[in-house]
Simulated assay, not measured.
Amino acid sequence: MRTIKKIHQADYRPIADLITYSPMPTASLQMIDPFIFLNHHGPQKYPPNNNGLPFGPHPHRGMETVTFILEGDIAHKDSGGHKSVIDRGGVQWMTAGSGLIHAEVSSEEFKNDGGDLEILQLWINLPAKFKMTEPRYKGLQEKDIPVVTLDSGNITAQVISGEFKGTKGAFDTLTDIHLTTIRFKKGSHLKLQVSGEENIFFYVVSGELKVNGEQAMYRHLIEFDNDDENLEIEAVEDSTLIFGHAKPFKEPVVARGPFVMNSMEEINQAYIDYEAGKLGSWEE
């Protein structure tokens, strides 16, 4: 079985009144190439007449964001003209590429009525050849994302991208990124194989799992060596896992604020371009 290198506990990093934990980057883990950043917002309950999510207009360049809406909703708008409200169970995939401005806030309905909220956002790097690709965005509701059922119905896997157990993911991606949200009922078992050439992204959102014999608690990110293909997962409790894998790009990564490039010169240029309005304009 693949060796666990280290288990990383997410750092607590609240944003205004939004409960936020981040397992990457931290002092103990910078990235799992090409997965570079994860924020886990919630779970929490918002009262009626709340301010919702605080992510007003801001730019990005050189990377992709994948947003998992486990509870609540997100109203997305960007300078490329894309708009959507994605509800519980849905996923957004935004390729920032050469650059755009976007906002991720709560719908007016959620701000008026309140409710449960739990959202995760994962940043995925783009290789140099795609850093300046044309930006794009796609948001899908839960019903539009394929689901694989395993272990007599005790495991359900929402296939986001790539492939999982023979089922193709909902999103077509520029690079070969495999992402799945897996929900386990207590006592269920799952065996997986991932090529030793690929890095694994393994974040326990809720519950408790045993992976290759070691305990993996909620808000833990598991870092693996690349010494074997096999994973064995057992659910100690009802649990949710975000599982991904991809070949590392093995390129220099320079991240500053909302930009992820290959050099400091490219970062400086991104800020210059943003100030000059080259990443688009914003109208309320």
Rank of each mutant, 00 (worst) to 15 (best):
W123K: 00
K77A: 15
L150I: 13
K185R: 13
G257H: 04
R136C: 13
H76Y: 01
D78P: 07
I182E: 00
T175H: 08
R219V: 05
A16M: 08
V211L: 09
T167G: 06
D78T: 08
A276L: 05
I233G: 00
N212R: 05
I267T: 11
G80V: 12
A16V: 12
S107T: 08
T240A: 05
L120P: 01
E197K: 09
K247F: 10
E234N: 10
L279H: 12
S152N: 15
I177T: 08
K247V: 13
L150P: 03
E108F: 11
G89F: 00
G114E: 14
F201W: 03
D113G: 10
H8A: 00
Y271Q: 02
S206Y: 00
G257W: 02
T95H: 05
L241Q: 02
F224K: 04
S152G: 13
F164V: 10
G196S: 08
M94L: 11
V85T: 14
S206N: 09
V105F: 12
I242P: 03
T173E: 11
E104Y: 07
D151P: 08
L117G: 02
L38Y: 10
F224P: 03
L38C: 04
F35Y: 10
V159D: 09
T65Q: 04
I124V: 10
P25R: 05
E265P: 01
P252M: 06
W93N: 00
T180E: 06
D151E: 14
G52F: 14
F164P: 01
A10S: 06
A170K: 15
K6L: 05
T20Y: 01
S239A: 13
D73T: 05
G207M: 08
Q9I: 13
V211Y: 02
G162P: 06
K278S: 01
I74H: 00
K210F: 11
I272A: 12
V66C: 00
H220E: 15
G56F: 14
Q215H: 14
L100N: 06
N212S: 02
R61A: 12
K185V: 06
E198N: 09
V159S: 03
N51G: 09
S152Y: 13
P48K: 12
N262M: 04
F35R: 03
I15Y: 05
E251K: 07
A75C: 07
K165D: 14
G207N: 00
G72D: 04
Y46L: 13
N230G: 11
F184E: 04
I177R: 01
I182S: 02
T175G: 11
L126D: 03
T20E: 05
G72H: 06
K6R: 11
M63C: 09
E266D: 12
I74A: 06
I145S: 00
I7T: 10
W93Q: 04
V66K: 03
S152E: 15
S195G: 10
K185D: 15
N230T: 09
M264T: 13
I101G: 01
D33W: 14
D78W: 13
Q121D: 01
K129V: 09
R61Q: 11
G162A: 08
S98P: 08
E64V: 06
D227R: 07
